[in-house]
């Protein structure tokens, strides 16, 4: 399948899954998992940096349209896209990805992927919940939300990756 078409399908499916399914799951007042950022995480390694930002902004804004919070997810996802290149460099050190076109579980080991997802989800949730409260007044509550939501989001994202792992190898 054409790579671009695959990306567009991934974008649409992840956004719809987020706003129609995940957003309606209630796990107490503090746990709000998000998985739509997986789209940014799975972009090819050689994606131009400015494209990362624009796609992150567009992805966040699309989710915002559904949740009625203009700018909230856009801001958080743009920050996450901005941090992606540095985080990849930070966690892989001297490792080179010359023959690996994009992050995928088939060719990269699970531990690398776990650290990659954990760092990016943390950046995203940190920005998101602070922007949502729009002040530092309720700092305790915001930190609790971050601490409780990050593990659930990471778990869901890793689960999605493992479910679709075999399919991507076949391509």
């Amino acid at each position: 399948m054409n790579k671009t078409v695959l990306q567009i399908i991934r974008f649409v499916v992840l956004v719809l899954f987020q706003v129609l399914v995940i957003n309606h799951i209630r796990l107490g007042g503090y746990v709000h998992p998000y998985i739509y950022m997986l789209f940014i995480m799975l972009l090819p390694f050689n994606t131009p940096k400015w494209q990362l930002l624009v796609l992150g902004f567009a992805l966040g804004l699309t989710v915002d349209l559904f949740t009625g919070t203009p700018g909230l997810h856009a801001g958080a996802t743009t920050l996450m896209a901005f941090c992606r290149p540095s985080i990849i460099q930070l966690i892989s050190g001297n490792q080179k990805f010359e023959n690996i076109p994009e992050p995928n579980l088939g060719q990269l080991d699970g531990m690398w992927f776990f650290r990659y997802v954990l760092c990016l989800v943390f950046v995203h949730h940190f920005a998101l919940f602070f922007l949502e409260s729009f002040s530092f007044r309720l700092i305790g509550q915001v930190l609790l939300r971050i601490l409780l939501s990050v593990p659930v989001s990471v778990f869901l994202i890793m689960m999605i990756l493992y479910i679709f792992k075999r399919e991507r190898k076949r391509e």
Partner: peptide, 21 residues
């Protein structure tokens, strides 16, 4: 360009968010 674009997009986001308050 990477940093400039990043700041630009973040400013847009925060302006949108501030207006929606």
């Amino acid at each position: 360009h990477f940093v400039i674009l990043f700041i630009l997009l973040e400013v847009i986001s925060i302006l949108l968010l501030a207006r929606s308050q």
